[in-house]
């Protein structure tokens, strides 16, 4: 293949059962290729960052792992089951980029409803609301919240189910630095407790919180590597610059080949 995916020599040592195993995954939508033959595996109990320019296929890949995306070819295995398997619905939490919650319900009622799908009790609902820092607003209508608060309701609705695999599409957009730091600490605690997290982001400095990074461009996997490897391969301590260098090198390589 022509892309620059690294050999998996950097696979983290600990877990034996992969959280997610993707083989030859392609998605075509209305004649356009959105994902082109992706191969990778994601270790469980780790934070994997999904990075790439807008339109590179991050959301489609996340949807494929959740099992809501109709795929053209390839396989997506999640915790040793096919993605979208009914049994996985208990174990996979998905937070979409646009918050998907009921605007006309209170914060608490939203979290309680999604919690009810997983038999969660009142205390667990409260805990999920506390986790996203909305304790004082729990009884307020979701529609009256600010943009950042609104997206945190959506996150709480996923946290309440305590999933084994948590997939988050741009969860920190519109959040202030304090809250962002708190959320990343929370994600780290979840991973330490065995939860597998897949998090997409535009903010490159957040990549440093991840154990491994998947770099996507034009529906292809550019590289799978650790933040440190990204720094050295991109020849910059600044992750954003390092990422830019890699992307530009890829564009140049493609231009040269054509």
């Amino acid at each position: 293949m022509s892309h620059l995916a690294l050999p998996h020599d950097n696979a983290p040592s600990a877990p034996s059962v992969p959280g997610v195993e993707v083989r030859g995954l392609s998605v075509r939508r209305a004649k356009a290729t959105v994902l082109a033959g992706l191969n990778f595996s994601i270790p469980s109990g780790r934070i994997t960052g999904l990075l790439g320019p807008s339109g590179s296929g991050k959301t489609t890949l996340m949807r494929a792992i959740v099992g809501v995306q109709r795929i053209t070819s390839g396989t997506v295995r999640v915790m040793d089951k096919d993605a979208g398997d009914p049994e996985l619905r208990r174990d996979v939490g998905y937070v979409t980029q646009a918050p998907s919650v009921y605007r006309d319900l209170s914060v608490e009622d939203n979290v309680r409803y999604f919690g009810a799908m997983h038999r969660r009790n009142r205390a667990q609902v409260r805990e999920a609301i506390d986790a996203v820092g909305l304790t004082d607003l729990a009884r307020g209508r979701t529609a009256d919240l600010s943009g950042g608060q609104f997206s945190r309701v959506s996150l709480a609705c996923a946290l309440v189910s305590t999933p084994r695999l948590l997939i988050l599409d741009e969860p920190t957009v519109g959040l202030d630095p304090v809250l962002r730091a708190e959320l990343w600490e929370r994600f780290a605690r979840l991973a330490a407790g065995g939860t597998t997290l897949i998090i997409s982001s535009h903010v490159m400095e957040e990549a440093s919180h991840c154990d491994t990074l998947l770099l996507l461009r034009d529906g292809k996997l550019l590289a799978q590597l650790t933040p440190d490897e990204l720094r050295s391969r991109g020849a910059s301590d600044d992750l954003e610059l390092a990422f830019l260098h890699l992307i530009r090198a890829d564009i140049a390589a493609q231009g040269g080949a054509a």
């Binding site: 099992g67 809501v68 619905r89 998907s100 919650v101 605007r103 799908m117 997983h118």
Partner: peptide, 13 residues
Amino acid sequence: TSGTLERLLTTPI
């Protein structure tokens, strides 16, 4: 259209 249906259908409901 709000995405809540898709989200609900990823749960055991």
